[in-house]
Nucleic acid binder design. Structure first.
Length: 509
RNA sequence: GGCGCUAUCGUCUAGGGGUUAGGACGUGAGAUUCUCAAUCUUAAAACCCGGGUUCGAUUCCCGGUAGCGCUACCA
């Protein structure tokens, strides 16, 4: 790839948590930077003060870091400082830069003051809609002479500042969609700077608009590839016109397809929890998310490989293989990937992630003994094959900490089984054998005894095992005895209120 | 209404002027295990419609349709 002069950016506005769509944009930027040896810049678009909340910024940075998307320049994760030479990286700190550029454009006659009121503009717009014309600004204030401008200013009329777009098509290139061309009517003369609020006499212009600041920032920060959601396609010609007005090099654009829900509408809260925060809390692993999100609109060259570690995605990534089609977010596939990474993760890591799910049932993590920790590893590992995400474990593990024999007996799936003559026999036979051994049972003990009972009674298969499972777990469904027995009895030895195998059986005799 | 983007199994997609249209998720069946899960094997499942170009189009071109996006002095 070209060189380290490649620079990309992710520019979220801190108005909420990091959701799937933004996470993918961030990921693709990061992937491209890492793949090409370029720089990944993080910029905070906090110009909309009303909606910006500082705690969201922090959360945003945390979630990016959680996903492993480290940035080369931008706000620091842990303090209010910044790294990089192209800052400030918060738009709210760049207002004077925008003002300087506006003055330049005005002086060069590439922008002009527009004294039209919102009401007048709205009227024009309605008329255009009624007549089926594109809604474009008439350009009324474009040709205003100096004296009229002066007079308007003297009279204290507020004004916005518009870019004077050239009367020719605007072109740019999109890595996903090829050449893009926009007719001049599609752009009209975009507002660069809002009129000041309140309309005080001699008012200075107000705040710069998104399309303007984003362009200035991208240009000044040397961004070479603008990778963003395709909802920005319509903004692109305005931005290109701004680049051209300043004589700046227009970057390559990369418009990513929309991520939609099963109903094919843009993915939103309606479709369930889709923020990185909630995925993390539900027990999805960041590498699973990175793998899955990378696949939403992109495929490696062979079109087949799907299970890719973050490193492998970096290696395989290329802009050319991004699809332009909207992608439906598929929880099933995410689950499959998460199950895969769950199997790869170390017990210590999983145990640490799961610990908080068991608040109140376990000692504080800091004060606990190694014995409890080791037992916890095994307990988590026991449930791992049957969950999509870590958050499913506590419900499945509830029986370990608390068993209600009456509830188990009453369950309509269990009632007949547990009441049968053969069940009573199995349970009492097993129980009397357990009483012969003082310490925690091993899986080997259990297997030996069960085989003995099998030949002694002639009871076998589910008739033999179901009653034991119900007595131990409250259900005929659950983990293999091979793991269950030691987890239960070693747990009991920990003195944190876990009933032993023997105690569980006794409750059913 | 205007402008734009998009169109291969249910889903993510590969492919490409002649293919048994490939893979993965999910689904069905079977194997295995004390159960569930996991695992293994296996099956079903797709080129939006209409024109054109061509000996031949799912593939290239045009139109339609549908979905989505934009249409702000929001970002």
């Amino acid at each position: 790839m070209e060189s380290e002069s490649i620079r990309v950016r992710f520019a979220p506005s801190p108005t909420g948590t990091l959701h799937v769509g933004n996470a993918r944009t961030a990921l693709y930027n990061w992937l491209f930077a890492r793949r090409s040896g370029g720089k990944f810049v993080l910029r905070i678009e906090d110009t909309d003060l009303d909606r910006t909340k500082t705690n969201y910024e922090k959360q945003l940075l945390q979630e990016l870091a959680w996903l492993g998307l480290n940035w080369d320049e931008g706000p620091n994760e842990n303090d209010l400082g910044e790294a990089g030479d192209a800052g400030p990286y918060r738009q709210s700190k760049r207002m004077d830069i925008y003002a300087t550029h506006t003055a330049q454009l005005l002086a060069e006659g590439k922008a002009y003051r527009c004294f039209c009121t919102p009401e007048e503009l709205e009227e024009e717009r309605q008329l255009a809609i009624a007549e089926g014309r594109p809604q474009v600004y008439s350009g009324r204030c474009r040709v205003m002479n100096k004296f009229d401008i002066k007079e308007n200013l003297l009279r204290g009329r507020t004004y916005s500042i518009r870019l004077q777009v050239p009367d020719r098509p605007v072109r740019c290139h999109d890595a996903v969609r090829g050449d893009l061309e926009f007719a001049p009517e599609a752009i009209s003369d975009p507002i660069l700077v809002r009129s000041a609020q309140g309309g005080t006499a001699g008012a200075s212009p107000g705040t710069p608009v998104y399309n303007y600041v984003v362009t200035i920032d991208d240009a000044l920060m040397g961004i070479t590839h603008v990778i963003r959601g395709d909802d920005h396609i319509a903004n692109t010609p305005k931005q290109v016109a701004i680049y051209e007005a300043f004589g700046w090099t227009v970057p390559e654009f990369v418009h990513l397809p929309t991520i939609v829900g099963p109903d094919r509408e843009r993915l939103s809260k309606r479709h369930g929890a889709t923020s990185m925060t909630s995925f993390r809390e539900m027990g999805y692993l960041p590498e699973a998310l990175v793998n899955y999100i990378a696949l939403l609109g992109w495929k490696p060259e062979d079109g087949k490989s799907e299970i890719l570690s973050p490193d492998q995605v970096v290696l395989a990534f290329s802009l050319e293989r991004i699809s332009p089609e909207p992608a439906i977010f598929d929880f099933e596939k995410l689950n499959m990937l998460n199950r895969h990474y769950l199997k790869l993760a170390t017990p210590a890591r999983l145990a640490a992630l799961c610990w908080d799910y068991f608040g109140g049932l376990l000692p504080e993590k800091e004060e606990t003994s190694d014995a409890v920790l080791v037992w916890f590893f095994h307990m988590i590992a026991m449930f791992l094959p049957s969950v999509n995400r870590l958050g499913e474990i506590p419900a499945k593990a509830a029986f370990i900490f608390h068993m209600d024999p009456n509830l188990a007996r009453a369950d309509h799936n269990n009632a007949d089984i547990i009441a049968s003559e053969s069940s009573r026999r199995v349970l009492s036979e097993l129980s009397s054998r357990i009483r012969t051994k003082p310490g925690p049972l091993t899986a080997a003990d259990f297997n030996t005894w069960m085989n003995e009972i099998k030949s002694a009674t002639g009871i076998s298969g589910s008739e033999l095992y179901d009653p034991v499972r119900i007595a131990l777990t409250g259900s005929t469904l659950g983990p293999e005895f091979e793991m269950l027995i030691p987890v239960l009895d070693q747990g009991a030895a920990l003195n944190i209120g876990i009933p032993s195998v023997g105690q569980r059986l006794a409750a059913f005799l």
